[in-house]
Amino acid sequence: MSNRQENEKTTTITEKEIGQFQSFYELPFFTENQTRKTVFVAMLAYAIDKNLEGFGPTNFHPIKLIRKICDLEKLQLPTCLQNAKEDDLWNDDWNREVVSFDSFVQQRLSPKWKTFIAMHRLATNSI
């Protein structure tokens, strides 16, 4: 298989996967504050990409997801979350720092999800 064919293969996201990704954004956590849709982007893709059990749209919990990603990827927890308990409500003051973390997680995605999230970020606020 040529490099080009290999690249092409890795850029394809199925409609089912797009549907899974979208279904996160239908949760009240995101509909009650639209800004959060720009904070949790790559992290949601990560949950689908790595097939994380217990972290899908039906049992989404922002702090638990961030902690899980930190454990798996050996990443440091964002400073703002270091004293947060798992059942604490989300504090929107954390958003600015967590955006940077999300951007970091993007680099840990598989090639096809990296492309998808790159397109998603480009399309947000421009169509």
Partner: peptide, 9 residues
């Protein structure tokens, strides 16, 4: 883009 989208939103 991540930072700008957040600020714009």
């Amino acid at each position: 883009l991540a930072q700008d989208n957040y600020l714009a939103a």
